[in-house]
Design a protein around this nucleic acid. Structure first.
Ligand code: FES
Ligand code: FES
Lengths: 159, 159
DNA sequence: TTCAAATTGGACCGAATTGGTTCTATTTGT
DNA sequence: ACAAATAGAACCAATTCGGTCCAATTTGAA
C-alpha cells in the first residue's frame, strides 16, 4: 500500500552490505557486483549517501566509501530520508502554508501527524546493524555471498 | 519520505467527511463540494470504496453513498488499502517468488517484514471515527464547513 | 609526469505511475 | 418519460522514477 522507492530500497541493501563486509572500505564496483544493483545506480546512491553524511569517501585510485558511524547507530529511517529527500510533512504542517484557517483545531491534521510519527518511529527502530547481523551466526553461510541480493527480488513494496 | 497517493489522501478526507456529517447518505456532488476534491475524482474514489465494501451505494434518483460500518470501526489502513490496491509485500515474501535461496535465513527479509508490520499497525491504529471527531466538541465550529478541506492543502506526504 | 583508478556532479531519457477527465450504460424516484 | 444518481471503463497529460551517460576532479603508482 505504500511503496518505498527503489533508491531507498537499494540504499538499504547497499548499506547493509557494507555493514556486513569486514572490509572497511568499499569501491563502487565491488558494491554493485555484490549487491547486484546496477553500477551506475549504486554510484548515484553512494554519492548522495556521502552528501548526507552517512558515508565518507576517499577519492582517487584505491578510493572507496566508508561508513562514518557504527552500523548499529544508523537507522533505516536515516537511509531512507537521505535518499528520498527532505521529509516533507503534510503541506499543512509545513511552514508558511497556513491555508485552512483551523490549523490549531483540525483533528485530521494532528492525526496525520500521529501517523507520520508512527511510521518514522517504525523505520527508526531498526538499525543497519540489525539488518546485517540478525541471523544467529551459527547459521551464517561460509562464503559471504549470502549477502542480500537485489537481482530479481527487490525489497520494494511496503506494508 | 514516504508518499501517500492522492487517491488515498482524498479517500481519507472523504471518509472523514462522511463520518462527520449527520446525514446518513451523501451524494457525490455534495461530497465533492464539501471536501473540494474534484467531482470526477471523488466519484471514482467513491466507486472503488463501494467495490471494496467500505461504502454502500443507492443508485438512481435520490441515490448516494452510505458507510457500511460505524466510522469508529473503520481504520485508515483499510481506506488506504482499498484505494492503493492489494497489499503487495516485498517480492521475496510473495508466494512463488523464491529466488534468493536463503529465504529462511535472510535477516533483511524478516526485518523488512517487521517494518511492514510496524507501518501497517500504525495506520490501523487510527480510525476514521477518530479522524472525524478528535476535537473536543466544545471547540467545534457552528457550521460544519470547518470540514477538513483538500483545496490547496492536500494531506499527501507521509513521514 | 603521465596514466589509470576512483569519486563527483549533473544532465539526460524512456518508461511507468499517477492525477484527473470524459463518455456511455444502468438504475430509480417522480 | 424524464431527470438524478451511480457504475464502469477508457483515456489523456503530467509528473515521477529508474536508470544511463558524460565531463571534471582527485589521487596513487609506474
Ligand atoms: S487541512 Fe490544514 S489543518 Fe486540516
Ligand atoms: S532477498 Fe529474498 S530473502 Fe533476502
Amino acid at each position: 500500500m505504500i511503496r518505498l522507492s527503489k533508491l531507498a530500497d537499494y540504499g538499504i541493501v547497499i548499506m547493509t552490505h557494507m555493514a556486513r563486509g569486514r572490509a572497511r572500505q568499499h569501491a563502487t564496483h565491488d558494491i554493485a557486483e555484490a549487491t547486484q544493483v546496477p553500477a551506475a545506480m549504486a554510484s548515484k546512491i553512494l554519492k548522495t549517501l556521502v552528501r548526507t553524511g552517512l558515508l565518507a569517501s576517499n577519492r582517487g585510485a584505491n578510493g572507496g566509501y566508508v561508513m562514518t558511524r557504527d552500523p548499529a547507530m544508523i537507522t533505516v529511517a536515516e537511509v531512507v530520508e537521505a535518499l528520498e529527500g527532505p521529509i516533507a510533512l503534510t503541506s499543512c504542517t509545513e511552514e508558511g502554508e497556513t491555508d485552512c484557517g483551523i490549523e490549531q483545531l483540525c483533528p485530521t491534521r494532528t492525526n496525520w501527524q500521529r501517523i507520520n510519527d508512527a511510521i518514522r518511529t517504525a523505520l527508526a527502530e531498526i538499525s543497519i546493524g540489525e539488518m546485517a547481523t540478525a541471523i544467529p551466526s551459527a547459521f551464517m553461510v561460509e562464503d559471504d555471498n549470502s549477502d542480500h541480493q537485489v537481482s530479481r527480488p527487490p525489497m520494494a513494496k511496503l506494508a
